[in-house]
Design a protein around this nucleic acid. Structure first.
Lengths: 222, 222
DNA sequence: AGTGCTTTTACGGATTCCCGTAAGGAAATG
DNA sequence: CATTTCCTTACGGGAATCCGTAAAAGCACT
């Protein structure tokens, strides 16, 4: 079993349970951080001391408070961890259950398992840790209803997300167009962007832009 | 100290910690439900058996799954509980930190304490339980930065929320107007509604309706 | 080059939003 | 009862959207 595990989780009410799982699995070294920045520091230090972590278990969203921080969420922590220790195994333990966001964790950040916080997530977490140790790939907790074969949400790509993000910030078509030109994102004609928004509206069954953004917010796309 | 406490919390990873707090306080009877419906049933049954609960500790958001349910969140559970046992003491333990929503819990649902899930919420929860037992009023966990004297968000009233909700559902001004007429909500002229939306846009510094809804979603108003 | 195909961009009319001004009505004041 | 004030509603012009059509550009293939 794993020898050294790092837990990144801000809510004390949850970290207690996670650590308990790790203790049940007889893992000798268990470290816990409440801020992403501290997590990265610990990973770096462990590498320097030639005693690197075997596994990172991280939440996605972290509350902000008085402290000024560099890494504000689990995605950023994992990305930073990948930069210094690419082979580190990673399990995400979060409330998020939107397939779009979870898929990108596997494809873009190379995580090994995703466990959704739910009514039986402790046993799911245990299974995921064991599966990750046996080098199983793309482990999903069983309460998640989608599979990696679903085509549906893969087609929403980062281009669409960019549009939705700017719309949600109050940009009008023309602003988005010039913003895209400035960032050399194509297509960037107002008309093309308009068409794309139209597709999104059809896809999400939205009556208008306002409705579309409300839905996108619900899906956690922005 | 309290004799009989009910915990309504769906996430197993959190309920473990909450129950541990209650055990530390030597509370003889601790019950735990993962669904709001079950919570109401237990409250009713305890009343019938003449052994009612002293305290309800409830989360706000509950995940939906295969099960069909009547009460879908903590607000509804508390409302239902108030109907059958008005004097029941109530503590809400949730991740929510938007002042608007928290205030309405105190004013509309008469809860005794609100504890925000955070980095030190276990000790905050303990303090809140003790304070509630001593009949202290309107207890807020200390990481929440607002106070009940803030005027700011009180002025957003249910009329505004109705408008925002309908906007988020893709209604145009005219639809909202007729919807309000049908529900006999006044004012209901398109022009008045328009003006009110305008005020909201100024208040939230929104460029347009799309932006406004994005902000409203962030504030948890819809 | 030339052809067919797709993607991108351009344009125009209808609808809706945006925003200022003003008319109409109810309550309050004197 | 007249006047003021506040609230609601009406109206109009300009801006942004919605939605369809068509031209222009890019690309693969021959």
């Amino acid at each position: 079993m794993f020898k050294k595990v790092l837990v990144a989780e801000d809510l004390d009410s949850i970290s207690i349970a996670v650590i308990q799982v790790l203790e049940d699995l007889n893992i000798p070294t268990i470290d816990h951080v409440k801020y992403c920045d501290d997590g990265l520091l610990k990973i770096k230090r462990a590498l320097i001391e030639k005693e690197p972590y075997d596994l990172l278990i991280s939440d996605l969203s972290f509350k902000s408070d008085h402290r000024t921080i560099n890494l504000s969420n689990g995605e950023e922590l994992i990305e930073a961890a990948n930069a210094v220790q690419p082979k580190l195994k990673k399990i995400v333990f979060s409330i998020e259950d939107k397939s779009y966001r979870i898929k990108s964790l596997f494809y873009d950040l190379g995580i090994n398992a995703y466990v959704s916080k739910g009514r039986n997530s402790i046993s799911e977490l245990k299974k995921a840790i064991e599966g990750t140790f046996r080098n199983e790939e793309k482990i999903l907790s069983s309460d998640l209803s989608f599979s990696f074969n679903d085509k549906a949400l893969i087609e929403i790509e980062s281009y669409d997300i960019s549009i939705l993000k700017l719309l949600a910030q109050g940009y009008i078509l023309e602003n988005i167009s010039s913003e895209f030109k400035a960032s050399s994102i194509t297509p960037n004609g107002t008309s093309s962007i308009e068409k794309r928004i139209n597709k999104l509206k059809i896809y999400f069954k939205a009556n208008n832009n306002v409705h579309l953004i409300a839905i996108a917010k619900d899906f956690g796309l922005v």
